[in-house]
Design a binder for these strands. Structure first.
Lengths: 121, 121
DNA sequence: TTTTTGCTTCGATGACCATCGAACTGAGGA
DNA sequence: TCCTCAGTTCGATGGTCATCGAAGCAAAAA
């Protein structure tokens, strides 16, 4: 039924309502930044893929996903009993040009990380 | 004396030690974001120029300036009994290309910025 | 229908943090 | 020397937030 399905749909803020400080605050947590980086490709991923990030429980993960969604960083699509997550990459680029891409680019690692005494192959 | 002057110099992290999540967390506060945007031009400004930001007291301002400095966003130069602040714009661009400029661009329009009269000699 | 699955929401807790006034400090001026 | 000035640091406080286990809920499976 359409009405029930609509009431179950999670809240997503409009692009124009996104606030820079809210977005930055959402990104300023290690767990949430890791989630965002895991979605860097832009493609949808099932929510269950995020289990194990930061060694947190499902309850805490759900909390972080809510913060990201309400800040406007992610979009959650409900399909049956599964949820699919995606970065709102195009929209964010439009609203804050260059910001999210630079964050994603800066994320992984800035330089080659060498183990002590080890050589990369 | 040089040693005494050095001991008075505030701590600044090395460029390579800056962490993305720390920078984003520092930016994710409305008062600190306003301070950063007030320094958008990149030029040095006297600390006293920031009085009145967000309607906070000097003690709170000093706290926020410390957070920004220790996150690597700003550089503080001590001259006599005055302090001068500047964004570490070039270094940040090098470390996190595009990020800080996109944040500055995404903020409110720089209506009144950086009067040349504030320059020290 | 009953059970299981996948995720959210609730309530509590502990940690962190923004904020303030007061005390402090170091530099410069009287 | 004593005072002022500019800003930091201290100690306390209230608020926000990350975290968890348990309960709840809708959809699919049994």
């Amino acid at each position: 039924m359409t009405a029930a399905a609509a009431s179950r749909a999670p809240y997503h803020p409009d692009l124009a309502d996104l606030e820079l400080v809210t977005v930055l605050h959402a990104l300023g947590d290690p767990v949430r930044l890791e989630i965002v980086q895991a979605l860097a490709g832009g493609a949808e991923r099932p929510c269950s893929d995020l289990h194990g990030v930061g060694g947190i429980t499902v309850a805490t993960l759900s909390h972080h996903l809510r913060v990201l969604r309400e800040a406007g960083l992610t979009r959650t699509r409900v399909s049956g009993k599964h949820r699919f997550l995606a970065l709102r990459l195009g929209e964010l680029e439009q609203r804050f040009p260059g910001m999210i891409t630079s964050v994603l680019r800066a994320g992984p690692e800035p330089a080659v990380q060498l183990e002590p005494g080890g050589q990369p192959r």
